[in-house]
Design a protein around this nucleic acid. Structure first.
Length: 270
DNA sequence: CCTGCTACCTGATGGC
DNA sequence: TGCCATCAGGTAGCAG
C-alpha cells in the first residue's frame, strides 16, 4: 500500500469508520506484527480506548487514542480490512481491533508491516526521524533545493530517503523523475536551479494526482480483495520496462539502484 | 554525519 | 505439472 498517497487515501476512508468509537478488545493473532512489543502489552494498552483521530506522517498511519497512539506501518503489503461480523475463515489477519459492532484487521501475510502502541507519536522512532512531509506546504521549491544541495547521492536514492522527504516510495520517485525529465542517476548536488524547480513541481503534482486516483474509487475495507485500482492509468514508467516512452517513444529501461528497480527513459530524462 | 549494503518475510510470476 | 529463480509499493541496523 505504502506510499503517502495510498496511506492518505486509507486515512480519509478510515476516519468516518472509527473516530469516536471504542476498542472493546483486541487480538494479536501473529505476534510478529507488534514486535518488539509484546501481545499482552499491546492488548492492555488499546483495551477500552476511544479513537480520538486518525492522522498520517509520511507513510505511517497514526490512530490517536484518548491515551496513547497506534502507529501503523504497512511496508510492502500491509492493509486494513473491516469486518462487520467476525472475521471470515480463510482471511489472514495479524491484529484485530474489536469495536463491538465491527472490527478492524491489520493484515500482512508477508509480516513486514507493524502495529505499535506509544504514549505519544513522537516516541515512535520511525515517525520521529521523518523529514518534511511531501504533502506539507513546507515542502516548497526552496526546501527541495536545500535538500538537494546537501547530498551527493543519486536523485533516485535521495527521493527514497524518508529522513529528507517523507512519503515518497519507489513508484512515485520513478514517476516524478520521469515527469521532471531528470535522469535518476544524476547527483543531487549537481542539479541546476531550474531543474530543481521542475522536480519539485513534478513531485507535488505526481503525489497529488496519485491521491485523487487512490480516492476514486474510495478504499473499500469491507472487501478483503480490495486494493487500489486503476493506478496504472497514471503510471508512465513504473513497471513499464520495454514499453515505449509516452513522450518520445524510446523504450523504458529498468536498472538497479541501491537494490531497488529504477525505471526511466534514457532519451528524455537527462 | 553521510552513504551503501544486508536482513527481514511470503507470495506471485515466468522460464525451462 | 513441477521446480527454480526472480521480483515485489520499505525500513532498521550496521560497517566503512
Amino acid at each position: 500500500m505504502p506510499e503517502a498517497p495510498e496511506v492518505e487515501a486509507v486515512l480519509r476512508a478510515l476516519r468516518p469508520l472509527i473516530v469516536g468509537r471504542v476498542i472493546q478488545s483486541s487480538k494479536v493473532i501473529h505476534p510478529i506484527a507488534v514486535r518488539p512489543q509484546s501481545p499482552s502489552f499491546f492488548k492492555a494498552r488499546v483495551r477500552r480506548q476511544q479513537i480520538a483521530g486518525v492522522t498520517r506522517q509520511g507513510k505511517y498511519l497514526l490512530i490517536q487514542l484518548k491515551n496513547g497512539c497506534l502507529v501503523l506501518h504497512f511496508r510492502f503489503d500491509g492493509q486494513l480490512i473491516w469486518f462487520d461480523e467476525a472475521p471470515s475463515r480463510g482471511v489472514h489477519v495479524d491484529v484485530l481491533l474489536n469495536f463491538g459492532r465491527g472490527s478492524l484487521g491489520f493484515v500482512d501475510r508477508r509480516h513486514f508491516g507493524r502495529v505499535h502502541w506509544y504514549r505519544n507519536a513522537e516516541d515512535a522512532q520511525g515517525p520521529r526521524r521523518l523529514g518534511i512531509d511531501v504533502f506539507s506546504p513546507k515542502f516548497n521549491s526552496p526546501a527541495l533545493r536545500e535538500i538537494l544541495s546537501r547530498s551527493n547521492r543519486p536523485l533516485k536514492a535521495l527521493l527514497l530517503d524518508q529522513t529528507k522527504i517523507a512519503g515518497i516510495g519507489n513508484i512515485y520517485s520513478n514517476e516524478a523523475l520521469w515527469h521532471s525529465r531528470l535522469d535518476p542517476r544524476r547527483r543531487a548536488n549537481r542539479i541546476m536551479p531550474a531543474e530543481s524547480r521542475r522536480l519539485h513541481k513534478a513531485i507535488v503534482s505526481t503525489v497529488k494526482r496519485a491521491v485523487e486516483c487512490c480516492c476514486d474509487p474510495a478504499p473499500d475495507f469491507r472487501d478483503p480483495n480490495w486494493w487500489f485500482q486503476g493506478l496504472e492509468r497514471i503510471l508512465r514508467v513504473y513497471r513499464l520496462e520495454g514499453k515505449p516512452c509516452r513522450r518520445c517513444g524510446k523504450h523504458i529501461r529498468r536498472i538497479e539502484q541501491g537494490g531497488r528497480s529504477t525505471y526511466f527513459c534514457r532519451r528524455c530524462q537527462r
